[in-house]
Amino acid sequence: MALFGSSKKNYSTITVKKRDVPDGLWMKCPSCGEVVYKEEVAANLEVCTKCNHHFTLPRQARIDLLSDPGTFEEWAGNIKSVDALGFTGMQSYVQKLEANQSKSGWDDAVTVGGCKLNGRDIGLGVMDFSFLGASMGSVVGERITYLIERCTKEKRPVLLACASGGARMYEGMLSLMQMAKTSAALARHAEAGLPYIPILTHPTMAGVMASFATLGDLIVAEPEALIGFAGARVIKETTQQDLPEGFQRSEFLQEHGLIDKVIPRSELREQMSLILDYLCDK
């Protein structure tokens, strides 16, 4: 959130002449500039049908992509964010939360649970950048920690689709400590010999990157996702450095040795299933 605000507008709707098409059914892809049919893009997992640009995949669609139909059971759904600091700024934390809840229909920035993927029991978490920039508050940290701990107990691998602008400022230091808490749970999951794979989606930054997003046995990413620690603007301001082309993109990070594999969304389910075959089956 610190870096991006909470806007999720990844594509712009263009005005098309009324006699040609009904309003709002078409959009212009910001990557290739082509006008594409929204429904087709949605059916294509929110990937541009002309240039393969990856738009944001909504939370439910991401859960559906990575679980067998009807198998996903939400865990730790009954916890709610609270304004522990009594944060007084231009807008209160409570107001921010309420606005994001009514806008999205979700209660917070992550959903976790158990499901099957190609018949295998797994733990799955999906972070949602459209909710307060998927910033890491206590609820986000607690759900992810619970997911990992329960999977350690039930001997399940964990897949975690990451996205985040970083810390949730409204929760101050409580937010920072979620990095420690989730990492602690991962230490025990790893100790038990269980696989954990973070799937980095656009964008994954800051505190989430400096904790569970980079602690995978493998770290995979969707194409062209923005991935890093500090924002490019901050780096430019502090260092006056020119940043290379493709800086902090998935492909750049694969080249620089952090990302094991950039996987197009169309292959994600199949590839995750295959990798888990290698890691889980003796």
């Binding site: 420690a180 400096a210 997003a213 620690f229 500090a230 450095q241 800086f247």
Partner: peptide, 22 residues
């Protein structure tokens, strides 16, 4: 927060410390 820091994966370095300290 700098180019070299990102190229050598500052986030991963911190994350690994968090996990390993446990």
């Amino acid at each position: 927060a700098g180019l070299e820091s990102e190229e050598r994966h500052i986030a991963e370095a911190i994350a690994v410390n968090l996990r390993e300290c446990f």
